[in-house]
Write a protein that binds this DNA or RNA. Structure first.
Lengths: 343, 343
DNA sequence: GCCCTGCTCTACAACGTTGTAGGATCGCCG
DNA sequence: CGGCGATCCTACAACGTTGTAGAGCAGGGC
């Protein structure tokens, strides 16, 4: 049986509350008393019961993180960063996977597990415009992603359009003119796909290049496989791109694979740019040029905002979008292999 | 303010305990009473406070999962499977990352966060022989991995030696004779590296092939980069392998990259086999032949064992090692590309 | 010399739930 | 028709912690 404050108090000859005060760093305690308590704690191997504290204080020190699935590299790395950031603020993380299934996404918002957590970092895929009211929950919520933009909550997002435009402009700057877009969601007006397509088209437009629908490759879910399939579709339709802007790195790696299988050289024949800066792209062949959306800062910001709200921070919902960067690799510039130690 | 059982009881005109009984499915309740309670619950949007229940029952329904980091694909996929398995048993998962740092690995075993969880699934990297006593903890622990073998706890592991032997025999069966091993930890006698090296050597031995130290590539951490470096080292030393058995998929992908950069064809010049069956290997170019160690079953078994222990299951520590399989891809047999839907 | 302030500590209640013990009612058996 | 077990429900205490209120005491200012 684990020791309780009772046991420590008895052994140290003080009241339970004094033990509590010592444990919580209350200042007005005589050094002699504190020492007796600390000694008793050490002798009994006492550790505080967090459940009891949580019940009493109404806060748990746990936050939830809802993502599609950890098997997707971006979300695995995001979870890594969130756990790291939470740790440094003294918080623990519970991860929930929704797999992009709307029903699970809703359940996560309302399930009883929410009583176990002080707040939630929420990255939906299925929810969209019209679901804003679902986000009006009785606990702090920080929204990630690009599915909903006018919810009543703090929102950390990427500079999707700007970054996509910059990536496309970078390709234009290399002299490429027939730039394919991989990962398009036709008909959608929200979400990363729509925003990145906007940026892509804006860059073409500004450069006086007419967008060619034949160069747009559809991909619902952004996996390696769907990237390869979308690339194949574009090529099969007879389009002859000299570059590819894929809406995430998994798509880019799939597309690159397809290009290579068909004997096209990357980057000589076709340059490839991705989005997300996952670690895998540092070691692909060739290494992948990609947009670094500031994943770590997104994670840190989300945790910081959420932590603030759990401690009562009031005020208007915040909207934050960290700066992005472009990491150049061998998939656009021959021999320009990114090393593992580069940022 | 969220509703409590008090509120529900008042509204339904029953005692608090009756509400508790309804919530917990106690059978002896008149249907009329049950209906009144359920109605009140619905009207008040009542949800049980898990913290209070946890305090009262002494169990939390949460289990911990300690892994090196989620950025490593194998552990991200393992976490995915563990969360899935836990969910299906009604458990929640807290993930802790130790990064292979001994100090963190020890802290995870003893930290106060353990009071938040009913038990721990623990996959250390730094701990080793001599640390068995650290595993003698006052809560249920299920050990993963190959660092410690005689701890006083349940242990779910892979059939490392058999699987490594089978992988090597498979390469021998293809007629390959100069098979490099990538990921060796010289001097180590425990851990996946030592066991897989044993299997590799046993297969060579049985086939009458003399092991060549020049074909063994060292790699401390099993990342893509270290795989490429180890491969380079082997080749630079003048060895001319016709196959590579890499001790995990990340190493294999790194090694394959290095081979291709040097103009060697995979699999024609050099066949490559990995270990872990991560999703990434399904889409690499060529797709990767690999050992499927039964990750999902490992996760399910670990959760099941842990859950049993948390509910008081007694008895000797269990040792479980699911069966393995070999997934054949293009990295060993030309044109034999694994599809995404294959097991 | 007395009051006030600040320090140090204690007793008690409360957080929301469930286990235990037992009271009331009913049907059925002898 | 008395007794007994099953059914249905309630009151109370307890899980281990922290907030609140306040007691006791020392030191300083007047």
């Amino acid at each position: 049986m684990a020791a309780t404050m009772q046991d420590v108090a008895r052994r140290a000859g003080v009241s339970v509350k004094t033990v509590s005060n010592v444990v919580n760093g209350y200042p007005h305690i005589r050094p002699a008393t504190r020492d007796r308590v600390l000694t008793a704690i050490a002798e009994l191997d006492y550790q505080i019961n967090l459940t009891a504290r949580n019940l009493r204080t109404g806060r748990t020190g746990i936050i939830g993180l809802a993502v599609p699935e950890l098997s997707l590299p971006y979300f695995a790395e995001l979870a890594d960063s969130v756990i790291e950031a939470a740790e440094s603020e003294g918080l623990t993380v519970i991860i929930e996977q929704h797999g992009g299934r709307r029903e699970r996404e809703v359940e996560i918002l309302t399930g009883s597990r929410r009583h176990l957590t002080d707040g939630l970092i929420y990255s939906p895929l299925a929810l969209g415009p019209g679901d804003e009211r679902l986000l009006d929950v009785p606990y702090p919520l920080v929204l990630l992603g690009e599915r909903i933009f006018h919810g009543p909550v703090d929102h950390v997002t990427m500079r999707n359009t700007d970054a996509a435009r910059a990536a496309t402009e970078y390709l234009l700057g290399l002299g490429r003119r027939r730039i394919a877009a991989v990962g398009v969601h036709p008909g959608e007006e929200v979400g990363s796909a729509a925003l990145r397509l906007d940026g892509y088209r804006a860059a073409l437009d500004a450069a006086g290049v007419r967008p060619d629908p034949a160069l747009e490759g559809e991909a619902g879910l952004w996996h390696r496989r769907t990237g390869a399939e979308a690339m194949a579709e574009v090529l099969d339709r007879g389009a002859r791109p000299d570059a590819v802007f894929a809406f995430n790195d998994a798509l880019a790696l799939g597309a690159m694979h397809e290009l290579q299988v068909r004997g096209l050289r990357v980057p000589e024949d076709v340059a490839v740019v991705g989005f997300d800066a996952i670690d895998e792209g540092r070691y692909s062949n060739p290494t992948l040029t990609t947009v670094d959306p500031g994943r770590e800062e997104i994670a840190r910001t989300a945790v910081r905002l959420l932590h603030g709200r759990t401690r009562g921070a009031a005020g208007e919902p915040q909207r934050v979008a960290p700066p992005f960067g472009i990491l150049v690799g061998g998939s656009t510039e021959p021999g320009r292999e990114r090393s593992a130690s580069e940022p």
